[in-house]
Structures are given as structure tokens and as C-alpha cells.
Amino acid sequence: MTAPVVTAALELRGVNAGYGRVQVLYDINLVLPPRGVVALLGPNGAGKSTLLRVASGRTVPSSGQVLLRGNDVTGRSPERLARVGLCSVPEGRGVFPNLTVSDNLRMWTFRPGVRRKDVEETAYGRFPRLAERRRQLAGRLSGGEQQMLAMSRALTADPDVLLLDEISMGLAPVVVAELFALVRQIADDGTPVLLVEQFARTALEVADEVAVLSQGRIRLHGAPDQVRDGVLATYLHAEGSA
């Protein structure tokens, strides 16, 4: 073999997964390259969130492997994965609502080597609104502010891999645009991002690669331009108008 071997940041190999007796994911093969944004699209109930649960260690696959930078981490607990650099922002609730903003930031320091002072500097520097509200409960923040607080973990933890689950949910288009600009910046700074998103067009704009999940299987995979038409058609039954 003469071709240079590029180790994937994250790889799912032949993953089958589900809850109890009910299978959700079927033979998933997905590679997250060391740089760039991979967007995972698909209708509700297709298994997108389950895929992220498997990748972050919250759900153990019934068969198949999860590899983090080439190391088999199948079955590893989510906290261990988090400590070695896998940062995962779950759907709709990336913050502790009953903790203050500054206590939330304190929680971002569990990755070894991350210091409280640096976290506060980065988070408050990037989002001055959080600094103003550091004594408030995170649950009292607006939706956009909560998502910024959640994203500040990705900014400060210096992750090797970033998993984002529907960070745009329930947010105003302006805020969504701001968030995705941030995602793009994080990716450009060298952190690979796997992104689950409901806004197909937004995701197509920001992603370098797109995978479409449906009924628990990956149906389409390619560059945004290659899959664009197919994706938009499945989302809004309006060919030509999109």
C-alpha cells in the first residue's frame, strides 16, 4: 500500500443498534474525516439521534464497531469518551437548566487539561451576553443564549471530534445563521464536526459531505452538490421550486 493512510476522526463500522427488541440502525458505515463538516440528514424517526447516541457512547451497538482516531472504543462509557476529546452536544438540551451559567461553565472543565479560567475567558469573550448573565440559571436564558452556552463547551474543550444534534431547533433564523457560522469556524480551525440537522438547505450550505439516513439505513452519501436535489425532494415535496 503506497497511498497515505488517513485515519478517520470517527468511524462507525457495520453498526446495528436499537432499544430493547426494536432495531433502529441497520449496518451503518460512516466515516468522519479528520477535517470538515459531515451533515447527517433525514426524516424524523430515521435514526439520526440514535446514530449520534452510538457515536457518543450513550447507546451500545448490538453489533459493529465505533472507532475514535482508529482506536476501537465500542462500549466505552460516554464520560470516558468525553474525557478523551469527543464533545457531544445533545438535542435541544446542551445545558443544565437548573445550574447558573457559571456553574455550567464549571462543568465544561471535566476534560483533563481544561482550566476554569480559560473556559470563562473564552466563553465570556466570545459571548459577552453570557458574562452579563453568569449568575442566572441557564434555564432562564433565551433559546439562542442557551445554545451559545452549549456551544461554548465545544469552543473551550478543544475537542478532537464534535457531534452536534439539531442545534438549530426552535431558534430564530438570525441565531441559526450565527450558530452555523460558528460551526464553520470551529471546523476550519481543524475540528471535524458531525452534524445532525433538520434544516436541509442550511446544512447543505455548511457541510463538506452529506449523508442521508432513512429507515435506519444510509441511503445517500456524497458532496452537497451531488445529493442536493435528492435531499430537497425528500424534505419538501416540491421539485423544481427548491
Binding site: 438547505r201 450550505e205 455548511v206 430537497l232 419538501l236 427548491a242
Partner: peptide
Amino acid sequence: FGQLLCEGSPAEVQADVGVQQAYLGAESVA
């Protein structure tokens, strides 16, 4: 966003630009 964006027949809704944005996201965010 908790508000009615528009209403109408399927054809009218499909043609609505706001609906497309709501469903697919705004064009050119990045």
C-alpha cells in the same frame, strides 16, 4: 417559532418562500 407562518391549500403552501425557509433553512447562511 410558535406562530402561524402561513396557511392555504397544498399548492399555495408549497409556493410560499417563507415556508421553504422554515423547512429547509435560509439560503446562504454561511
